[in-house]
Structures are given as structure tokens and as C-alpha cells.
Amino acid sequence: MTDITIGADISKDHIDLHRLPDGQTLNVTNDRKGFAAILKWIGPKGAGRIVYEPTGPYHKAFERFMAMQGLQLCKVNPRVARRFAEATGRLAKTDRIDAALLARFGALLEPRILQANTQIHNDLKELHMARLALIKDRTAAKNRAKNLSNPLLKRHNTHRLRQIERQIKAVDEAIMALIAEDATLKARLEILISIPGVSRVTAFTLLIEMPELGELDEKAAAALSGLAPISRQSGRWTGRAFIAGGRAAIVRQALYMPALVACRFNPELSAKYDLLIKAGKPPKVAITAIMRKIILLANALLRKNQKWTPKAA
């Protein structure tokens, strides 16, 4: 490990790089020839981390190639990187400026290093995004079915629903097959499904959308899942806390049904839910608290590498 940090701004055709602390820059094509030039530019000293933003399909070949070379990669949220740029007073936006800001972001904040199995996670992520799109298509088709009266259109919609169900099943099988190929992912999945109420779908959603689980402290796990209450206070004024941020759109949705099941069949979480209701909390707030409990439990079990077991009476 060295103190060298490299920021990489990746576009469809080119990659701009900025290295700290010496401030050297490089512009290469986004292909294997350009990747080889980057390795030569980095040289034998290596780099502590290469910081970049996800850019749809354009960063994947770069990410895969650099991971195979054993380089430390940090993929950061574009919104967070933009907020960092604004905080430093740099409002201008060009590829070279973005590369420099990413390098500075990495040097100051030291973001999390990607795990080694980058390729399998990319494949799982792509399959999961396809699954989410199919779920939306299924919901739309079911809503259309309520309003259709033409026999031909009703048959077409029925056929489409059956096709979507087959495609969802195929995607689920592909996801499970990929997980089964990796011993670590398979073990992590078994730990997650040992938690009462957590199905295989919920488990692989957490593995794909929150690969950091098991490496975080409780506050970070709750925040990343979008389940940490955000306080609002200034002087003597105190507003109502609310949950926001994180990967709420996917992770919170995946945890909702397991929370409902846990409120009925998990003695510890059911008791927690009843306690919150008796304290006057609205049911939605109580369920959110159970969702947070589940994600914290999953994080703790993965960190300890052990399955869930009921507490002794």
C-alpha cells in the first residue's frame, strides 16, 4: 500500500486520470490499449487506491481489468462526489476537473475498497436490475388487466404476464446459480436465510445491493440501508426525525415483507413491535424499527460468520 491516490473520470471513449500527491495527469482511450497505458503510467510504485464513479456500462471493462491486476478500486456514489466538489467550491465540471476531484476525495476520505469478486458482483447486479424491471412490467400488466375489455388484448396481456413470470423465474435461477459458484457468497446467503422471515429473494437482494454487510458498524449499516432516523434540531427547536438516504429504493422494499413476518413469528422482534405500539408509535414507525433491527441482525451475523439461532428462554 502506498499514499498514491488516483482519480479516474470514465466516459464512453476516454478516461482522464489525476494522481496525487504529484498532480500528474493522463488521458487514454477507454479500451485495453488505454488500460495498458494506465498500468505503465502507474509504474512499479503502484497506487493506494483508484477512485472512480460508475458510468453505466462504460466503467465495467476498466474495473474488471484493474481488479485483475490486483489494484485497489473505490467506486463512489456520483451524488456524493458531486456534493464533495461543491463543498470545495469547485462548480466547474470537466473530465479533467472531475478526475482531480475524485483523487482528492479518495485521498481525504479514504472510501471503501471494492471486494475482490468484482466481476461476479457486476453480473449479479445486472441480473438483479433486470429482475426489478420485470417486477415493474408485471405490476403494469396486472393493472392493465383490470381495465381491458377487448378479448384479443386480454389474451395478449395474459400471455405477457405468463412470459414475465417465466423470465423472473429464469433470472432468479441465474442469480442463485452465480451465488452457488462462489463459496463465500453461498455461505453468506445461508446465514441470511437462517433469519426468520428472510426469504431467498430478500437474502440475495441484500447480498447484491449491500455487499458491505458484515463489514459495517451498526450506525453505518442502518444509514446505508436508509433506515437510520435523521434528527432535525436547531437551537430550542426540535423537529420530527425521519428516515431517508441510503439505498432505500431497493433495500427498504426488500425488508418490508420480512419485517411483517418477523412481527408475527419472531418472538424477540414481535415483542419489540408490541412494545413500540404500546408506547404509542404508529404501526408504520414500528415496522420501520423492525426493518432496522433485521438489517442490524444480518450485519452482526455476517460479521460473526454464524447463522441465526433463537435465544434461550
Rank of each mutant, 00 (worst) to 15 (best):
Q72T: 09
I175H: 02
P258S: 13
A67Y: 05
L224G: 01
Y58V: 14
P283E: 00
A298M: 06
E86G: 15
R303H: 11
A103K: 02
A87P: 15
N143T: 00
L207M: 09
A271P: 05
A180I: 09
R19P: 12
N157C: 00
D137Y: 09
L224Q: 03
G214S: 13
P283T: 09
C263P: 10
V261N: 10
A107Q: 05
A221H: 02
P282Q: 05
R232G: 06
A313C: 01
N305F: 01
C74A: 10
L124Y: 03
A183C: 10
K45R: 14
Q167M: 11
D3R: 05
A47V: 14
M210F: 07
S225I: 07
K219T: 15
W237H: 09
L109A: 08
D217P: 11
F84D: 14
A100N: 10
R303M: 02
L207S: 01
G70H: 14
R160K: 12
A248R: 14
I4V: 11
L108T: 13
K146R: 00
D217R: 12
V261A: 13
N150R: 01
T118K: 05
E209W: 10
I120A: 06
A203K: 09
D31R: 02
E268C: 06
P211F: 06
G46I: 09
R155C: 00
I10F: 10
L206I: 02
P211E: 11
L207P: 01
L178T: 04
R166N: 15
D3L: 03
K60L: 12
D123G: 03
G280A: 04
A8D: 08
H121P: 03
T25R: 12
K60N: 13
R90T: 15
H59L: 04
R90A: 15
S11Y: 04
E218S: 15
N122M: 10
N266T: 09
A220F: 08
E165R: 11
H159S: 08
N305K: 13
A81W: 00
R131E: 10
A223F: 01
Y58R: 11
A107V: 00
K307S: 14
A220M: 14
L134K: 12
L71D: 03
L132E: 13
T288R: 04
G280L: 00
N266S: 08
V285P: 02
A81S: 09
H128P: 03
L161R: 12
G246S: 12
P111N: 08
A87F: 14
E53Y: 09
P111R: 03
L189P: 08
Q24F: 07
G46F: 06
I208C: 03
A81V: 04
L161P: 02
T309F: 07
L152Y: 00
A103T: 08
L276S: 04
M1H: 10
I97G: 09
R188A: 06
A103G: 13
E126L: 08
E181C: 09
T94G: 14
S149E: 00
L216Y: 07
L91Q: 15
K169Q: 15
G46T: 12
K304C: 02
I243M: 05
D182V: 04
W237L: 06
N77R: 11
Q69C: 14
D182R: 02
M257Y: 11
A180F: 07
A312E: 04
A61D: 13
A36Y: 02
I294T: 01
I15K: 03
A223N: 04
G48L: 05
A228M: 11
H121T: 08
E126W: 04
P44S: 15
D9I: 08
L302A: 05
I287C: 01
P44L: 11
L297T: 07
